[in-house]
Amino acid sequence: MSIAPLEWTTVCPVDDILPNTGVSALVAGRHVAVFRVGETQFYAIDNVDPKSGASVLSRGLVGNLGEHVVVASPLYKNHFDLADGVCLEAPEYSVRAHTVRIEDGRVQVALA
Score class of each variant (00 low, 15 high):
10 T>S: 07
58 S>F: 14
91 P>I: 05
63 G>R: 12
84 D>R: 01
39 E>Y: 06
14 V>E: 11
75 L>H: 08
20 N>R: 01
81 D>G: 03
14 V>K: 04
96 R>G: 15
87 C>V: 03
14 V>I: 06
69 V>M: 12
50 P>Q: 00
4 A>S: 11
82 L>V: 00
102 I>K: 04
74 P>T: 00
2 S>I: 05
112 A>H: 07
63 G>H: 11
21 T>L: 00
93 Y>A: 14
6 L>N: 09
88 L>W: 03
1 M>S: 00
69 V>L: 14
5 P>R: 01
52 S>P: 04
37 V>S: 08
87 C>F: 05
60 G>S: 07
7 E>K: 13
19 P>G: 08
8 W>P: 10
78 N>I: 12
83 A>H: 15
4 A>T: 11
34 V>S: 05
105 G>S: 09
36 R>P: 09
51 K>P: 14
66 G>A: 07
70 V>P: 10
91 P>H: 04
41 Q>K: 02
54 A>V: 12
26 L>Q: 11
73 S>P: 06
45 I>V: 12
98 H>E: 03
103 E>W: 12
76 Y>Q: 14
75 L>S: 10
13 P>M: 08
50 P>E: 10
86 V>C: 08
62 V>M: 07
76 Y>S: 11
17 I>H: 05
44 A>R: 03
22 G>I: 10
107 V>W: 02
25 A>S: 04
44 A>Q: 00
42 F>S: 13
98 H>V: 01
92 E>T: 15
81 D>M: 02
94 S>V: 01
2 S>K: 04
37 V>Q: 01
8 W>V: 02
40 T>L: 12
107 V>G: 11
91 P>D: 04
68 H>A: 10
60 G>D: 13
94 S>Y: 03
53 G>V: 10
103 E>A: 14
101 R>D: 00
80 F>E: 10
69 V>Q: 09
105 G>I: 07
24 S>G: 15
28 A>G: 01
50 P>C: 03
14 V>T: 11
93 Y>M: 13
26 L>H: 06
39 E>H: 10
16 D>W: 13
17 I>A: 02
17 I>W: 06
77 K>G: 11
103 E>P: 05
33 A>Y: 00
89 E>G: 09
61 L>C: 05
8 W>H: 05
36 R>E: 08
34 V>P: 06
72 A>T: 15
63 G>W: 05
61 L>E: 14
